[in-house]
């Protein structure tokens, strides 16, 4: 299996001397389904931003498919679901309009979407089970359905790496389970590398092959079954 993501001795500080991340080594193979968890403020989001090339490490290197992450040449193959508070603006966008935004990088910026792009948009909407809600404003849907719409948006770009940052925030427990099983199905169907980043990982524990706990550095990296019992709630990661 070739490497999709590689971090070597990565440290990061927003202010000199105050490291958010320190000495992080992480290798993720192509097609893996990995949960990255840890307490709030533990550096998960910074780690994700470094992986996606939005931040450059203060020390060490971050690579995507062997290229420096901040200069990755195939950015259109990166799918990213940001935290929900950053999504959607105030516009009454429908599910189809949201998902169409996922074809921006791959389908070209100018003029209307081409037929093939529109087909991919419809396919992504069907894949997440929102076919009956394609023309419904996203704001009128439940939290879980809204997340499905934004996952469809990321899928519409045909990503080789899909990163989801706190996808279950504001989503009820039942929808969290259903979201996790949707991701597991998409992973087996599409074969993309999926990073599920959250302060809670109970919902995906049964589906991911690997769990990485981050608290400034990596404090656990292995199959979820190997996690010490007391750590199963990530807020206890400091124990």
């Amino acid at each position: 299996m070739s490497l999709a993501i590689e971090l070597s001795s990565v440290s990061f500080a927003y202010r000199a001397g105050h490291h958010v991340l320190e000495g992080v080594d992480l290798r993720i193979g192509e097609g893996a389904f990995v949960a990255i968890a840890g307490p709030n403020g533990g550096g998960k989001t910074t780690l994700v931003r470094i992986i996606l090339g939005l931040e450059r490490p203060s020390e060490g290197t971050a690579s995507l498919y062997g290229e420096p992450a901040h200069r990755f040449s195939r950015r259109r193959t990166l799918g990213y679901l940001a935290q929900r508070s950053e999504l959607g603006g105030d516009a009454p966008a429908t599910v189809r309009e949201v998902v169409s935004a996922g074809r921006l990088a791959a389908g070209g910026l100018l003029g209307p979407l081409r037929r093939r792009d529109r087909e991919l948009v419809t396919e992504a909407i069907e894949r997440v089970g929102l076919g009956d809600f394609a023309d419904t404003p996203v704001q009128t849907l439940s939290g879980g359905m809204q997340q499905r719409a934004f996952i469809a948006k990321a899928l519409a770009g045909e990503p080789s790496i899909l990163v989801l940052d706190e996808p279950t925030t504001g989503v009820d427990a039942e929808s969290q389970e259903s979201l996790a099983s949707l991701l597991a199905r998409l992973h087996s169907e599409l074969g993309a590398t999926i990073l599920y980043v959250s302060h809670e990982f109970g919902a995906v524990e049964q589906f991911v092959e690997r769990l990485v706990l981050v608290r400034r550095t990596i404090v656990f990296d292995g199959p979820p079954q190997a996690l010490p019992g007391v750590w199963h709630d990530p807020s206890h990661a400091h124990a």
Partner: peptide, 9 residues
Amino acid sequence: VDEEGARVA
């Protein structure tokens, strides 16, 4: 709809 997602892509 999603500035950060578009930036990443």
